[in-house]
């Protein structure tokens, strides 16, 4: 197993290991598009399976990305939910069975509205997660949440719709999702982000808002693609070579530029992490190293375990 180069960052000092609180049985992995949610989700599922024998990875979509990330991992169930099916699955019990359900769901206007209202889609996805978790009481469920433009704002949806509806089957649906899923101890939001100052700042603001608005604090902050360390000695040597008049001076200058750029990237990432220092151990970031090609789920699981993502 290789050590994560990021693990020696100042925020994760080797002297005092950080003990993070346990994760709930359902883990919701979220973050902006392109930060590596799928890779982290698959890594978390493999790590949980390594700890507990079995785990499930839930993916919304066609199943391609989970399959690619998981590879041939044993011990992980891959559950694929098509977004359109999520809606029908969650909405059917709403109207009871029989004539009323058929009329309401078959109504041309209701159909269009269900498709147009994204909040309902998110509610339906959460309801499906609740159903999966209830169906598999003996295993950890890791959910690769779809990227949304609004961070983790969708976690507010069931609570808000519950307040709006006040009574009836729809209220009960929202209430069930809030009580059995979107509550502390029931699920753990894991936020994936990048070591960039503004991105980190935005992520932490969102985490804070979620804790205040939903009462559901983020359980982990995973900072992906931490630039690797460059020996400063090498940068200095490249510069010295570059100053000379020997035939390789130009080559050395090109190298010095690349090394210096990497050094700056590393320094800026560390500064961003320092800026984003948080109080609770849950949000002391778990750092994953940058890698030129996608790491395997097994590799990510090793990094997560070494970084103390699972207590």
């Amino acid at each position: 197993m290789s050590n994560p180069p990021g693990a020696s960052a100042s925020t994760q000092s080797a002297t005092a290991p950080i003990v993070r609180p346990p994760l709930a049985r359902v883990v919701l992995v979220t973050g902006k598009g392109g930060v590596g949610k799928t890779t982290v989700s698959a890594g978390l599922a493999v790590a949980q399976a390594a700890r507990h024998g079995r785990a499930a990875l839930v993916e919304f979509g066609d199943g391609e990305s989970g399959l690619r990330a998981l590879g041939k991992q044993r011990g992980v169930d891959h559950i694929v939910i098509k977004p359109d099916e999520a809606l029908t699955r969650a909405a059917s019990p709403l109207f009871g069975s029989g004539l009323f359900a058929k009329i309401a769901l078959g109504n041309f206007a209701v159909k269009r509205m269900l498709k147009a209202a994204p909040a309902l889609r998110e509610l339906a996805m959460l309801e499906c997660i609740r159903l999966v978790a209830a169906d598999k009481p003996d295993r950890y469920v890791i959910v690769d949440m779809p990227a949304t433009g609004h961070g983790i704002a969708w976690l507010r949806v069931p609570k808000q719709l519950r307040e709006v509806s006040q009574a009836g089957p729809f209220f009960e649906l929202c209430d069930r999702v809030v009580r059995e899923l979107v509550s502390p101890g029931r699920c753990s939001p894991v936020v994936v982000t990048l070591p960039e100052k503004l991105v980190l700042k935005e992520t932490l603001e969102l985490c804070e808002a979620m804790e205040n608005v939903v009462g559901l604090p983020a359980a982990r902050l995973i900072v992906n693609r931490m630039p690797s360390e460059i020996a400063h000695e090498a940068v200095l040597e490249a510069r010295t070579l570059g100053e000379g008049k020997q035939p390789l001076a130009a080559a050395a200058r090109a190298l010095a530029d690349v090394l210096a750029a990497r050094e700056v990237a590393r320094r800026e990432a560390l500064a961003a992490l320092d800026d984003a220092k948080t109080s609770g151990p849950a949000l002391v970031p778990v750092l994953l190293p940058e890698s030129p090609i996608d790491p395997s789920a097994k590799q990510v699981a090793d990094w997560l375990l070494a970084g103390g993502a699972l207590p």
Binding site: G96, F100, N107, G168, F170
Partner: peptide
Amino acid sequence: ALARGLGGRL
């Protein structure tokens, strides 16, 4: 049917 599923106020 809608009122029954969603509640009158909603």
